[in-house]
């Protein structure tokens, strides 16, 4: 009976994360269209509901009522498996995200390793979708985005190693607590790890295949890339996974480099503004999420060889050097280690 109760309680907590996540994705797509619209002196969506707030739901309903087309030559099993393999890790990664001190579904000690594993698994969905569709555009798009994702994952991994060196733990809650102190936002890891902070977020944008790194779905060359043969609800699943990943990267950047739920004025002023709160975390993550949209409205698309050069010849050397620098600084006790 106790086990059953625990199971039900855990399921309730999972839904408490998954449902708001889906809603957040829905409104993030609306925000994207509105923000990019305003940046290009357009209005964006205006019609459905007050302030177009019902637009995401109309879009969802429309996608669900579209025909699911499976190409004749497709590998049926892999074709259906691919969107699931993309969605499951994109959602499961949220299991270890702490939203406030002690507020996480699961506080495993290997949290960061788990996150790296989950964000890496997404590439299987991409490869499988491109292969199973048996279409040239899908195949080319899958090859491109897979190579791009794994390349930027190396830079991302090295940036995470720097975070572990500075914090001394793989536990995400401890990583945030290692950034607590009395010097406000100068205690956070963005300062000792400044190059890694920049590399991490740019790699995150590349990893999620977003503009300006969106050659995988460069409309002018290979249409939509790996999911060109997916329609209706199957496309919606890819879409959901992509946006869930974008929000995840935004949250992670806030957690690892901007002190998570800690206040930027910690130790300086008291009262509500000096207290840690989950509102800080959401505010910081929103900045990164906004940057995603801003990049898309501002930057022209990179060429593929430029993307690979940036990943391999700029980011990887910088990150390797910074691993050495931060390790020496920590051991020489120039920078104090958290925990």
């Amino acid at each position: 009976m106790d086990d059953l109760l625990l199971l039900a309680w855990t399921l309730a907590k999972i839904l408490l994360i998954a449902v708001p996540l889906i809603v957040a994705v829905a409104f993030f797509t609306l925000a994207e269209r509105k923000v990019i619209g305003w940046m290009q002196v357009r209005l964006g969506p205006t019609e459905i509901g007050p302030l177009a707030l019902a637009q995401p739901f109309a879009d969802t309903a429309k996608m669900l009522f579209k025909e699911l087309v499976m190409p004749r030559n497709a590998d049926r099993f892999l074709y259906i498996l691919a969107p699931l393999l993309t969605l499951a890790p994109a959602f499961a990664a949220w299991a270890v995200i702490p939203f406030d001190q002690g507020v996480a579904l699961s506080q495993i000690d290997a949290g960061l390793l788990y996150l790296l594993a989950m964000t890496s698994l997404g590439v299987y969905g991409v490869i499988l979708a491109g292969w199973a569709s048996n279409s040239k555009y899908a195949f080319l798009g899958a090859m491109r985005s897979a190579a791009q994702i794994v390349s930027y994952e190396i830079a991302m991994g090295f940036a995470l190693v720097c975070v572990i060196v500075a914090s001394g733990s793989l536990n995400i809650e401890k990583i945030v607590l290692a950034q607590a102190g009395n010097a406000g936002f100068f205690e956070w890891f963005w300062l000792p790890l400044l190059p890694m902070f920049v590399v991490y977020f740019i790699s995150g944008v590349a990893e999620t295949n977003r503009a300006p790194f969106d050659v995988a779905e460069g409309e002018s060359e290979i249409v939509a890339g790996f999911h060109v043969e997916y329609s209706g609800a199957a496309f919606a699943v890819f879409f959901l996974a992509e946006y869930a990943n974008m929000i995840l990267i935004s949250l992670l950047a806030a957690i690892m480099f901007l002190g998570g739920w800690l206040s930027p004025f910690q130790g300086w002023i008291g009262g509500f503004l000096g207290e840690p709160s989950f509102l800080w975390l959401f505010a910081k993550a929103s900045i990164f999420a906004f940057c995603y949209l801003w990049f898309r409205a501002t930057f022209p698309r990179y060429r593929y060889d430029q993307i690979m050069r940036l990943g391999w010849k700029v980011f990887i050397p910088i990150t390797i050097v910074w691993v050495a620098v931060i390790a020496v600084l920590i051991v020489a006790k120039v920078v104090e280690r958290g925990v």
Binding site: A18, V96, A233
Partner: peptide, 19 residues
């Protein structure tokens, strides 16, 4: 790790439900 395994299951169910 049990909640994590469950979460993977729930995410798969959401995907299957959508499809």
């Amino acid at each position: 790790y049990l909640p994590i395994a469950l979460f993977l299951g729930v995410a798969t169910v959401i995907g299957i439900a959508l499809l």
